[in-house]
Amino acid sequence: MAAWKGLTTNVLSHEPALYENSFPVEGGTYENAGHVSSQIKALLKGMKISKEVVRRAALVTYESEINICSYARSGKIVLRVTPEHVTIEAIDEGQGIVDIELAMQEGYSTATDRIREMGFGAGMGLCNIKNFSDFFRITSEIGKGTHLKMVIRIDKDFDGI
């Protein structure tokens, strides 16, 4: 099953990467939740990418990271920066999503009471990710895991990187 936004951007893989790295995310705990997002935000800030792009990238990374903490056994976030795009992939091993269309609906959440008590579980994470990305794709296999890909365009007229 899959859902997406924007054009398929296979062309991106041909752009030379200025930066590429993978960050492990622990599932089933919030102990380090947000840590990878903070790291990625700091990294992007150091690359002199516009504030707005950094903030959007931080948001989509955070929501993906929290979903791995909440719903998966383990996962990773892969960051790839080219002169024109920031690409973030969140890949996890876990239960997967039975109905992606439903999961993408604002307000739909399977979060437990324990998760909701901490302020998660509004059912907004995936919608936020979609809204704040220029390109977004989600695929999932039940019992195996979920794969999100988000691409954010770096301002064309910004010569920071």
Partner: peptide, 26 residues
Amino acid sequence: LLSDVMANSKEGDLWITRQTHQNIVA
């Protein structure tokens, strides 16, 4: 609701909440 705050709050905002869990810092 953290996802609401993530999506709709802005830079320089003073965030008023009842959440006390460590995720508010992130």
